[in-house]
Design a protein around this nucleic acid. Structure first.
Length: 520
RNA sequence: GAGCCUGUAGCUCAGUCGGUAGAGCAACGGACUUUUAAUCCGUUGGUCGUGGGUUCGAGUCCCACCGGGCUCACCA
């Protein structure tokens, strides 16, 4: 090479990494003085085609068939992307160009590109270039653009990761998600699938006349769930505030206000541990439908998931075939074929725990045998339903392959839920479990202000005063006193849904920038 | 917060019993106009996470610390 491609290379023995590391060493210009002058890519017909490599290649294959090697009569094309692989064979170079949609091979011949051949020497892996050319099919039958011209767009000053393995360190992948997205297989499609799932849910709800709203994320009272909130402070008002832990209470206020079908999809923050299924900030959707109940919420939950799978399949992100709702999950699969199973809490308890859920003594004995405490530290007996739920979580939840709706929970565990008519100890609630993971949670909403107040108070009875003050939401009770329609309410963990639909075993694979300790 | 594992070149990884720090990819020089992780010849590149200790000698053994992973705990 010998030539200094960027006007700054020191000598033939200086590694490119060092050249690249020198701040200001590389300007946005090419040696040879060729200016970057690209028309906007979305303004021309060919350019639009070039923007979706994957769809474009499929279309060309369909149009031109699986041809032999040779020229194809077709349009002149211009594509742009990142050079991720290069195979040089003397005066002929094959390069893999990658854009958001996939990879496309370029064939660059010295004779064919003329003066632009100077550029080829100067392209490093990771650089962004544009290529003008015509369609050819190579010896191996791969649809390829035979370059007639090259345009340098952007220099990559950092060296790309190893080309076989990519970046494997999970921390580095999350910290440098841009590198992960750019070079690691499967990452881009997964996040594009996430975007599609979110869009699908919004569209499905719009079809059903749901109204999307944005509630406050700064709460004076962090309610709607039992979780530790993050705290922050507003200087001008000199008050402590909490980042929201749930969307519920403000959405219900809007129902009182008359928005009959309301939802919010947004971030909530819980100051708790990190695990493959938990990130301190995560995305959930909560929706409320006036005059619905938990049964209509079950139907809706199923529909939202099925719609999303349909959308993924249309876009090529989910398998098609005779079992379109069977999705891969690690070495296994998940069968989303509707309808999902529906079983009551007591029914499952009987089956998996092997004792009568309504026989308190038997449940207590079972709990004791499993090592759970049946009396609290003061020696007083613990609430029967709490003991029962511990046994349930231990014996039933992990065994639930699903998708399965678990219905009719003990009422004492559900302070925001309406009681079953004629069975006040049962709450009209379901949770959707898939692969042992709690994906959705829904109620027939409690709209009795007096009962709500009472339940708040009894729920807070075990907490100390400061916590109690933080949780008692008098305004919410006041809102209910103005009359909230009977309604079904539903919450779905979006991150977990994306995990299940994209075969991702950890939540950190579906969150672009999961919480990490600051570097250094 | 607890237990187990882990940190070596830009990236992916070896490194035996404590005895001169290695390979592949990338990068640099050379050959090659149908390659597919191209191939072939040559070259450059190291604070072995940090600090201490043992030793004639430490990537290797010991201690502490700092990261990371897995499992558990926390988590409607």
């Amino acid at each position: 090479m010998g030539i200094d491609p960027w006007g700054q290379r020191l000598d033939d023995h200086t590694p490119i990494a060092e050249v690249r590391a020198q701040a200001g060493a590389v300007k946005y210009r090419c040696a040879g003085g060729k200016e970057v002058d690209l028309p906007p890519f979305d303004s021309g017909e060919a350019a639009v085609e070039g923007l979706d490599f994957r769809a474009w290649k499929a279309a060309q294959d369909a149009e031109y068939g699986d041809g032999e090697r040779g020229e194809i009569t077709g349009p002149t094309l211009r594509v742009a992307g990142r050079v991720v692989l290069m195979r040089t064979a003397g005066k002929l170079v094959f390069a893999s160009l990658r854009d958001q949609t996939g990879d496309l091979q370029l064939m660059i011949g010295k004779q064919q590109v003329g003066d632009d051949w100077d550029l080829v020497d100067k392209i490093d892996l990771g650089d962004l270039i544009a290529c003008d050319g015509t369609l050819v099919r190579t010896n191996t039958g791969e649809l390829t653009i035979a370059a007639t011209g090259l345009t340098f767009l952007t220099k990559s000053l950092e060296v790309p990761p190893e080309k076989h393995h990519g970046l494997t360190d999970p921390e580095a992948r999350q910290r440098m998600r841009y590198v992960d997205l750019a070079y690691n297989d499967g990452v881009m499609p997964r996040f594009l699938a996430r975007s599609l799932i979110v869009r699908s849910i919004r569209e499905s709800l719009a079809e059903r006349r749901f109204v999307e709203v944005e509630g406050p994320t700064l709460h004076a009272i962090a309610g709607g769930a039992a979780a530790r909130p993050f705290t922050t402070h507003h200087n001008a008002l000199d008050i402590d505030l909490f980042l929201r832990i749930a969307l519920e209470l403000h959405l219900k206020r809007l129902m009182v206000g008359g928005i009959e079908r309301v939802y919010e999809m947004g971030r909530v923050y819980r100051n708790e541990g990190i695990s493959p299924r938990h990130n301190p900030e995560f995305t959930m959707i909560e929706l409320y439908q006036a005059y619905g109940d938990y049964n209509s919420m079950m139907d809706l939950t199923e529909a939202l998931i099925i719609d999303a799978i349909d959308r993924l399949r249309e876009a090529g992100y989910a398998p098609s075939g005779d079992k379109p709702y069977v999705l891969p999950w690690g070495d296994d699969t998940i069968d989303f074929t509707p309808p999902f199973k529906r079983r009551t809490y007591d029914d499952l308890f009987q089956e998996y725990a092997g004792c009568d859920p309504n026989d308190e003594a038997a449940v207590a004995a079972k709990a004791k045998s499993m090592g759970f405490a049946v009396v609290d530290e003061a020696g007083a007996p613990r609430h029967a339903d709490v003991i029962k739920s511990e046994v349930f979580e231990e014996t039933v939840e992990d065994a639930l392959v699903g998708p399965i709706f678990v219905t009719d929970y003990p009422a004492s565990l559900c302070p925001l839920t309406k009681r079953k008519t004629g069975a006040p100890h049962i709450a009209e609630r379901f949770e959707l479990f898939i692969k042992g993971m709690e994906l959705a949670n829904a109620y027939t909403e409690l709209n009795d202000p007096d009962l709500q107040e009472e339940l708040f108070k009894s729920q807070l009875a075990g907490l100390d005063e400061s916590e109690s003050m933080a949780k008692m939401d008098d305004d919410f009770v006041r809102a209910l006193r103005h009359g909230m329609p009977p309604a079904g309410g539903l919450g779905i963990g979006i991150d977990r849904l994306v995990m299940l639909l994209t075969n991702s075993q950890t939540i950190r694979d579906v969150i672009l920038f999961p919480l990490l300790r600051p570097e250094r």
